[in-house]
């Protein structure tokens, strides 16, 4: 059945309407979770606010487990889902650079959109910087074209590297996430003396 667009079940301009709706949901959730504030985001690195870790890992495990069930019931053909290709060298560099950018800038691109939406000037500057960064990369591309495509491993999955099934990988990520949730809760309790636990 799914994914719908690659299989031509949804065609024409409808996919743009859906893109708009999905983007809307994405932005709403990011903002409502508090990602429009760079201090909330950066808190994850200093132990005073773990909202990034919680939202991020919860979303990750929900999506992963969901994909497994979608696959099981035949609702989605995992072969047609885009698997981000792996280029070892350039991704190592990219990850490290983004780590620096994250700590210094306090945003990532998606969150900075929502920050701009509610009127944060630092979000605008971040996006301007982001724009400049991509421009630098694009114009300098011939210099590191070989590096960029070096270590091409194709659309490889975690399971294929480790020799495990997607199910085991998912279970592992779920366990790591749960440990992180409970562990950060303890840390947060210690760092913030007056803690206001989130309640349902």
């Amino acid at each position: 059945m799914g994914p719908l667009i690659p299989q031509g079940i949804i065609t024409g301009q409808w996919d743009f309407v859906i893109a708009l709706l999905i983007g809307f949901a994405f932005g709403f959730i990011l903002e409502a979770s508090g990602f429009s504030s760079s201090r909330n985001i950066a808190g994850v690195f200093y132990g005073y606010n773990f909202v990034v870790l919680r939202v991020f890992f919860t979303a990750l495990i929900v999506a992963m487990v969901g994909l497994l069930y979608f696959d099981y019931f035949g609702w989605i053909n995992l072969d047609l889902v885009y698997i981000l290709p792996t280029y070892i060298h350039s991704m190592l560099l990219g990850g490290v650079l983004m780590g620096f950018g994250f700590v210094i800038g306090g945003f990532c691109p998606g969150t900075s959109f929502t920050a701009i939406a509610i009127g944060k000037l630092d979000g605008i500057v971040f996006i301007l910087g982001f724009f400049v960064g991509i421009a630098i990369f694009s114009f300098g591309f011939p210099l590191y074209e070989d590096f960029f495509t070096a270590g091409d491993m194709g659309n490889i999955t975690i399971g294929e590297i480790l020799g495990l099934s997607n199910q085991i990988v998912t279970l592992g990520v779920v366990l790591v996430a749960l440990v992180a949730f409970w562990g950060t809760w303890l840390i947060e309790k210690r760092v913030r003396k007056t803690i206001n636990p989130f309640k349902f």
């Binding site: 990219g94 983004m98 950018g101 800038g105």
Partner: peptide
């Protein structure tokens, strides 16, 4: 924020995508 944005911009291209 500007410096972070630049680093993130370059990094996101090498990394084939940003945090999302």
């Amino acid at each position: 924020a500007g410096i972070g944005g630049i680093l993130f911009g370059i990094g996101s291209q090498f990394g084939r995508g940003c945090s999302s």
